[in-house]
Structures are given as structure tokens and as C-alpha cells.
């Protein structure tokens, strides 16, 4: 369990061809009566990691995520297809600087990038802004706290609903001032990856454009829903 409503699933994939941090897979489940459901999940592990992992957040009235978070047991099998996705991926060879902005489960593909950065002992300037409702809702919060100290990724958090006592991070919805405080300046021409629920991505990407970042440098991945 990563939080009370999200789990990391470690998979043994036959003939896995390898992936680039940021890519995703398609998961396909098949019920007894032959009914099938497919959804996309980002790969949480770095290409260098020995374990292949997905992290899934439970959407309460969802069809697939409650099964993956609550029902799946060690030894179960299901179909996985991938890796998929070119634009939303990064490798050390592509260089930096880098700004990663993740909301909720949108942290997953960004975590793969941060893990890749750490595994390669990269010195590339990588900044990561994580938005969540509370500290307990931040996926991988222990690993991320370690990463700040050890692996040279500059990780900042904003907790929008509830903050622990003595909290020193941000405590509001993402805004222009926050993105300026975290990010490399537009003049440094960072590559930017934004991922999370659609309204979060819309807001963050619009703010980044308004701050003067080049639209072509901003890669976005929207994890549904729209609320409309």
C-alpha cells in the first residue's frame, strides 16, 4: 500500500522489451463471461529497476482500479501491453533542466523519471512539484523525502487540504507564484512534464504558458475525468 487508497503492484512480465521513464502500459482484465475491460497505467519503476511496478489509485466507483487495488492477490495474472507513449517520456540522454509537476496519481510517471535520474546518478537539474490533498495522500512520500536529501532531485510539496503540524511546504492549490518558486526560469528553457487529473493539468499547463514557458516544451498527460 502506498496510501490508504493506492497500491503499488509489482509485476513479472514475460518478454518485457524494456521501457523509457514516463511510458505506460495497457492493462486488460477478463471476467468469467469473457467481458473485458482495459485501462492505461503508467510505469512507476525506472528502466534500471529490477522490479517492474505500477501504482494504482482506487477510484471508488471505478471498474478496474478497485479490482487492482483491492482484489488482486500475489500470483494472479492479467494481460499487459506496452510500453506505450513517446512524447511523455524522458531519459538522462535527453538532458535538462527539467520541471516535473504532478497531481495525485499523476506523480506515477514522474516518479519513474526521478528514479531513473537517481539510478543513473544524474546531475541534471530536476525539480519536482507534488500536489496532494494531505501528506498521507502523497504517493511514495518516504522515498521522496529521502530523494530530496540523497539523490539531488529538488522535490517540493503542496498540500491543498490538510497539513501536518509545523508543515514548511506549500499549502494551497498550484499557482503562478509557486511554479516560479519551484521551477527553472523560462529563460533556462526547461523541459516540462505535467501529469494528473484533467483540471489539474489544464490549470498547471496554462499557468506555465502564462509564465513564459514555451508551449512546445510542455508535455502533458491527463488521467481523466473531466467532471462534465
Amino acid at each position: 500500500m502506498e496510501t490508504s487508497h493506492a497500491s503499488t503492484i509489482v509485476l513479472d512480465v514475460e518478454d518485457w522489451p524494456g521501457h523509457i521513464a514516463g511510458q505506460h502500459v495497457d492493462v486488460r482484465l477478463t471476467a468469467q463471461d469473457g467481458y473485458q475491460a482495459q485501462r492505461s497505467y503508467s510505469i512507476a519503476s525506472a528502466p534500471e529497476d529490477s522490479r517492474f511496478a505500477l501504482t494504482v489509485e482506487r477510484i471508488d466507483d471505478g471498474e478496474v482500479s478497485p479490482y487492482l487495488v483491492g482484489e488482486l492477490r500475489v500470483g494472479d495474472t492479467f494481460e499487459v501491453r506496452g510500453p506505450i507513449g513517446g512524447p511523455f517520456s524522458w531519459r538522462v540522454e535527453s538532458g535538462g533542466p527539467l520541471l516535473l509537476v504532478g497531481g495525485g496519481s499523476g506523480l506515477v510517471p514522474l516518479m519513474a523519471m526521478a528514479r531513473h535520474h537517481a539510478a543513473r546518478r544524474s546531475e541534471i537539474d530536476m525539480r519536482l512539484l507534488v500536489s496532494a490533498r494531505s501528506w498521507e495522500d502523497v504517493l511514495y512520500h518516504e522515498e521522496l523525502s529521502r530523494q530530496v536529501r540523497r539523490d539531488g532531485v529538488d522535490v517540493r510539496f503542496t498540500l491543498t487540504r490538510e497539513q501536518p503540524a509545523g508543515w514548511g511546504g506549500f499549502a494551497r492549490r498550484i499557482d503562478a507564484e509557486m511554479l516560479s518558486a519551484v521551477g527553472p526560469k523560462p529563460s533556462a528553457k526547461p523541459a516540462i512534464f505535467v501529469c494528473g487529473p484533467t483540471p489539474f493539468v489544464e490549470r498547471a499547463a496554462n499557468l506555465l504558458v502564462e509564465l513564459g514557458h514555451r508551449p512546445q516544451a510542455i508535455r502533458a498527460e491527463r488521467f481523466g475525468p473531466t467532471g462534465s
Binding site: R28, Y35, Q36, A37, Q38, E63, P87, F88, T198, E202, A205, N206, L208, V209, P215, Q216, I218, R219, A220, E221, R222, G224, P225, T226, G227, S228
Partner: peptide
């Protein structure tokens, strides 16, 4: 299974009521 005509749903797809957004960059 919802009361929708399965002949209208291509293989591997499922019907939604909202209107998800997918694009690779800012709007």
C-alpha cells in the same frame, strides 16, 4: 453491463457519460 447496444462499442472500448480530455501539451 449497461443497457447499451454492444454493436455500437468497438472491441476493447467502454462507454462513458462524461467527456475525457486527452492532449499532449497545454491547451
Amino acid at each position: 453491463r449497461r443497457d447499451i447496444d454492444p454493436a455500437r462499442i468497438p472491441p476493447g472500448q467502454y462507454a462513458v457519460d462524461d467527456f475525457p480530455v486527452l492532449s499532449a501539451g497545454p491547451t
